[in-house]
Write a protein that binds this DNA or RNA. Structure first.
Length: 362
DNA sequence: CCCGGCGATACCGTTACTTCA
DNA sequence: CCTGAAGTAACGGTATCGCCG
């Protein structure tokens, strides 16, 4: 995935604890047949990123599971959702606008030669395809009940289309027929989507009947809804990863500075660097190096005793092992353990350990 | 058991339409 | 009134799966 690739080495390292993925549906639903191919494809797509990030996710799939675990980076997770288009839509709908409401209760005026669109199925397949669930759907059921108020059902042909282009319905149906779902319909579909991001044929038929829509419409709505969800999630993820990148860049900058200071310190007090690397820790606030094993200075001793961060972050979710990230999350004097950095197989590029103890000095 | 055809369904990209600022 | 942007319903294409002969 380009996102991950563009985030550079630091991202790849810090992403070790990232549980990435663009999950847009529930896991159990993803198990349904017919979608597996796409799930697999997505998994493959994110697979490279997963491997880069170490794949600490318990699942083979790399998913941006919405786990509230970004303590290290101090970033809220899940990120706040972007303004909901649905709410916007509903808002628009609540303005009293409902173009689906037919000017008159024309009801299924028969024939609708205008119905050449796919859904068509509903009407055309009535007799042709015994397997077509849509075809088995009685068109008469579209009128008269349900939330719809939308009598634009296929076969409802002339005059019952509620969109403003009613005049187009007589032109042979070559023009795309687009109607607006009513507030009730949208809300109901939303509720259904919350429960199931995908529909089985039974559910689809039931929904269609209940909403006075064609099954094809319900199907399309869910497809578009999934696409919107994915798009939004992608945007949110992108934004979040950008912030992660910025944080890590800052972290890297700070570590470089820290390294320079340590090197300078080494030149002044060569013996100081003979301490084992794992015993060194850095207070992110005062940015002083302290020893975890040896008695430290008054300030660092107080801080190091308050919190001894585990060397290994909790599994799953986004957890930063870096000190600045910890500082961002909890700007106290908690020392960040260098050991956490060193324990990482790849570590940060500017890891202190190897350079702090050059072979010549030992 | 393997293979090809078929239907169903998913996703993606795009188009067309609607609404609003 | 016109126009561009944004949202979204709908469409076409493609891939995969399960079923069946």
């Amino acid at each position: 995935m380009e996102l991950g690739l563009s985030l550079g080495e630091a991202m790849a390292d810090a992403g070790r604890e990232l549980v990435l993925g663009l999950g847009m549906g529930r896991r159990e639903e993803a198990a349904e047949a017919g979608r597996r191919d796409h799930e697999v494809r997505r998994e493959l797509e994110f697979g490279s990123m997963s491997s880069r990030c170490g794949g600490s996710s318990p699942e083979p799939t790399v998913r941006l599971t919405l786990l509230p675990m970004v303590p290290g980076l101090g970033l809220p997770w899940p990120p706040p959702p972007p303004p909901s288009s649905e709410s916007r839509h509903l808002e628009a709908s609540t303005r009293g606008f409902d173009v689906n409401r037919p000017p008159s209760s024309g009801g299924g005026g028969g024939g609708g030669g205008a119905e050449e669109e796919q859904d068509d199925v509903a009407g055309a397949a009535l007799s042709s395809s015994p397997n077509n669930s849509a075809g088995s759907f009685p068109m008469d059921d579209f009128s008269g009940h349900g939330l719809g108020g939308n009598d634009a059902a296929p076969g409802g042909g002339g005059g019952d289309r509620s969109c403003s282009r009613a005049s187009d319905e007589d032109d042979g149906g070559s023009a795309r027929k687009k109607l607006r779902l009513s507030k009730e319909q949208s809300a109901f579909l939303e509720e259904s989507f919350k429960e199931h991001s995908t529909l089985n044929p039974k559910q689809k038929l039931a929904l269609a009947k209940q909403l006075n829509l064609r099954p094809r419409q319900v199907e399309v709505w869910f497809q578009n809804r999934r696409a919107r969800t994915k798009l939004k999630q992608t945007e949110v993820d992108c934004e979040y990863l950008k912030r992660c990148c910025e944080t890590l860049t800052e972290e890297n900058r700070r570590l470089q500075k820290e390294l320079a200071e340590l090197r300078a310190l080494k030149t002044v007090h060569p013996f100081y660097m003979h301490l084992p690397a794992t015993t060194l820790s850095m207070c992110p606030s005062c940015e002083r190096v302290a020893s975890n094993s040896a008695p430290a200075t008054a300030s660092s001793a107080a801080t190091s005793s308050t919190a001894a961060p585990p060397a290994a972050p909790s599994s799953g979710g986004i957890a930063a092992t870096s000190s600045s990230a910890a500082a961002a999350a909890a700007p106290d004097h908690r020392p960040s353990s260098f050991a956490a950095l060193f324990s990482s197989p790849r570590g940060f590029p500017l890891s202190v350990a190897p350079q702090a103890q050059p072979p010549t000095s030992s």
